[in-house]
């Protein structure tokens, strides 16, 4: 802080600190805290409440009509009924505006077994996407960083980046067109005579979870390649030659020299890919078109916008945040890298 003031003066330092604090507080801490708080309230909403109130009002109308028509001694009895009904309506309306709520972990613990299985499946799928993305990206990153000539490396890099100038949705739709029943691949197969559109013998790629994997890997490939590329790039080329000179096989060289060096990049790439794919909504939504089961992210969406149960939605979303945090910690432990290495 003092060195900041010395280099930039009080005014600028004040602006820096305020902006950072603003960022931390308003954009990170506050929404998460709000989400956490929401997720801890469980509201016992009665779905029939609206109907009950409506019915009570119509009963009330009838009774009031009766009361007007009636004469003599029937009057007090009707009046009594009207009073009871009015009381009832008041309680019901109070319930509607301020339903009975409970503070606690119910939203987390009461996840249905179906939702829980989707939750586990989504984590498993995201892990699979991460592993596959690593398997695809590591060779590419290594090739660009160490094997390609500078010009070719620049071209490869450009080739990787250009698709990202296009909106993510469009990129996913592109894969949809490729993998669709009458998409590019099936058309090619039909042209080769392997499948026939008329007999509907096309290969239903979109019904396999693999299609979501492919689209997810494609969508997040850069997040895996760049961190790995950045660390591999800093590896001294002489170390590769030294390993080669000492008789090291390709596998041994990578296992003992390149991978240990690239650990921080691999950890960052895996963390980013995992978090993005476990929380991805558009890719599974578009690719499966509801034809195969929901991903957890779609479930969260439904809680918020279809069931209108924000508290459960918040609990689900926060569960996902916890999973991501756990994943980060595990990656840091497994790769023996600290926050400092990751932030490099």
């Amino acid at each position: 802080m003092n060195s900041l003031i010395r280099s930039y003066g009080k005014g600028l330092t004040g602006i820096f600190v305020t902006l950072t604090a603003f960022w931390l507080l308003l954009l990170i801490i506050l929404p998460q805290a709000f989400m956490l708080d929401q997720s801890l309230w469980s509201i016992d909403k009665d779905d029939q409440l609206g109907m009950k109130i409506d019915r009570a009002y119509s009963d009330l109308g009838l009774l009031e009509y009766d009361a007007q028509q009636a004469t003599g001694d029937t009057n007090p009895a009707v009046q009594e009924k009207i009073d009871t009904l009015k009381e009832e309506i008041a309680t019901l309306e109070a319930q509607e505006t301020d339903p009975p709520r409970e503070y606690g972990l119910q939203n987390y613990t009461r996840m249905s077994s179906l939702h829980f299985s989707i939750f586990v499946k989504s984590i498993f799928y995201a892990l699979a996407v991460t592993v596959l993305a690593f398997a695809v990206c590591y060779p590419v990153a290594f090739t660009i960083a160490k094997l390609a000539t500078p010009q070719r490396a620049a071209l490869l890099m450009l080739g990787l980046i250009i698709p990202y100038a296009i909106n993510e949705l469009l990129r996913v739709y592109a894969w949809l067109m490729i993998l669709d029943y009458q998409g590019v691949i099936n058309s090619l197969l039909a042209w080769m005579g392997v499948v026939s559109f008329a007999d509907k013998t096309w290969i239903p790629f979109l019904e396999y979870p693999g299609s979501v994997f492919v689209a997810l890997i494609y969508a997040y490939v850069l997040f895996m390649i760049f961190p790995i590329y950045n660390t591999v790039e800093t590896l001294d080329k002489n170390q590769l030659e030294a390993a080669q000179d000492l008789g090291g096989s390709v596998f041994l060289t990578h296992w003992r020299v390149v991978l240990p060096h690239a650990k921080p990049g691999i950890a960052v790439g895996c963390i980013m890919t995992f978090m993005l794919s476990v929380g991805s909504y558009s890719v599974p939504q578009i690719m499966t078109r509801g034809k195969s089961g929901d991903w957890f992210s779609q479930l969260i969406y439904r809680q918020f916008f279809e069931t209108q149960n924000w508290n459960v939605g918040a609990a689900y979303a926060f569960s996902l945040v916890l999973v991501c945090l756990a994943f980060i910690l595990i990656m840091m432990k497994v790769f023996k890298v600290g926050i400092r290495d990751i932030s490099k």
Binding site: N238, Q239, E241, D245, V257
Partner: peptide, 17 residues
């Protein structure tokens, strides 16, 4: 290749792992 030759190279920057 270098792996198969009866030679060993000491690099200018040593290239220790």
């Amino acid at each position: 290749g270098p792996a198969k030759r009866p030679t060993a190279l000491i690099f200018q920057n040593l290239a220790l792992f």
